[in-house]
Simulated assay, not measured.
Amino acid sequence: MTEGLTIGQAAAYVGVTIKTVRHYHRLGLVAEPERDSSGYRRYGSGELFRLVQVRTLAAAGVPLAEVGDLLDAGPEEFAATLDAVHQQLTERIEELTARRDRLHRLDHGDRALLPDRACAVLARLAELGFGDDYVSCQREALVLTRALVPEIFGTFLARLEDSLADPEAVELTKHGWEARSWDPDDPRIEELASRTADKLLTHHALLTMPTEFGDQADAASRYGLVNHHGEDQAPSIARLNTLIEAHLRAAGIAVPP
């Protein structure tokens, strides 16, 4: 009676493929059994036990490059290595969870690019009667702020939240958006800029730039890309923003030039 199992039988019993068993052999994780008189390699209980060990550790996430040393290690080293693998797997799970959440956000519009707090601001704009074009513009501004000037993103959100809770500020903002259709030299722009700046200055703290941001060499260019986004399509808005910034600087606010 022939003793031992063929490679196909051994692979099936252990729960892997023949290709996997041969791969374990190439890596030196499992010794190849000697051939019998008929020329076949026969797997005994020792080889099967080793195959089960390797398969179990690999399935648990232990890199194959570490499996051999791990199986030959003493109890303390074995435990320490398993702890390290556990930490690696935990980090990998956290990374995959974050990627899954980002994919989930892709199915929910704004949440693909913005945190929930910013999405709530955009939803509030729609509730207050701002049109889709304005909401879209603010969405772009929020995304750009988060990407280019993350140092002031929280303050920017707080300023938006504060203004949306103030009916007068809401009306000023709507008038500002209507100014897109005005001539850049329309005298109403100067009046609107003055009123808007005065309203912004009622919450002086929300206009203060963090020192670590203002001291950076590229602060002005990054800030400008955000604060003047879209002005090329509305010259009157460009003038309005320039006048508002001038009023703020005159009041002592360090708006990047």
Results as ranks from 00 to 15, higher is better:
Gly129Trp: 03
Leu157Asp: 12
Val135Leu: 07
Thr6His: 03
Asp185Lys: 10
Tyr24Asp: 09
Ala126Ser: 14
Ala217Leu: 11
Leu160Val: 06
Leu48Cys: 05
Gly224Tyr: 06
Gly8Cys: 06
Val135Ser: 05
Arg195Phe: 01
Glu66Phe: 03
Ala98Tyr: 04
Ala120Glu: 15
Val121Tyr: 02
Glu47Asn: 04
Thr2Ala: 06
Tyr223Asn: 09
Arg55Pro: 00
Glu94Pro: 00
Ala250Thr: 05
Ala193Met: 04
Phe213Leu: 15
Ala73Tyr: 02
Gly28Asn: 04
Ser136Ala: 15
Asp185Cys: 13
Asp166His: 01
Thr145Asn: 08
Leu148Cys: 08
Met1Asn: 09
Arg100Tyr: 08
Ala205Cys: 02
Ser38Asp: 14
Ala193Gln: 02
Arg26Pro: 06
Ile152His: 00
Leu160Gly: 03
Leu48Arg: 04
Ala11Tyr: 03
Pro150Asn: 06
Ala193Arg: 02
Glu168Leu: 03
Pro184Ala: 09
Ala126Asp: 15
Tyr43Gly: 11
Phe78Thr: 01
Pro150Phe: 07
Leu243Thr: 11
Val30Gly: 03
Ser221Cys: 04
Asp116Gln: 14
Arg139Asp: 12
Arg111Cys: 05
Gly28His: 07
Arg92Pro: 14
Leu164Ala: 11
Ala126Pro: 00
Leu248Gln: 09
Arg105Pro: 00
His23Gln: 08
Glu95Asp: 14
Tyr13Trp: 09
Thr90Cys: 07
Arg239Ser: 07
His86Trp: 10
Arg195Trp: 01
Arg188Phe: 01
Gln53Cys: 13
Arg239Val: 15
Asp101Ala: 13
Thr90Glu: 15
Ser221Asp: 12
Asp110Leu: 06
Glu212Gln: 13
Val16Gln: 04
Asp232Glu: 15
Gly109Asp: 10
Asp83Trp: 01
Glu231Ala: 09
Thr20Lys: 02
Leu51Asp: 15
Ile189Glu: 00
Leu240Pro: 11
Val62Phe: 10
Glu178Gln: 13
Gln87His: 11
Arg195Lys: 07
Pro256His: 02
Asp198Lys: 02
Asp162Glu: 15
Ser136His: 12
Asp132Pro: 00
Thr211Ile: 11
Asp162Asn: 11
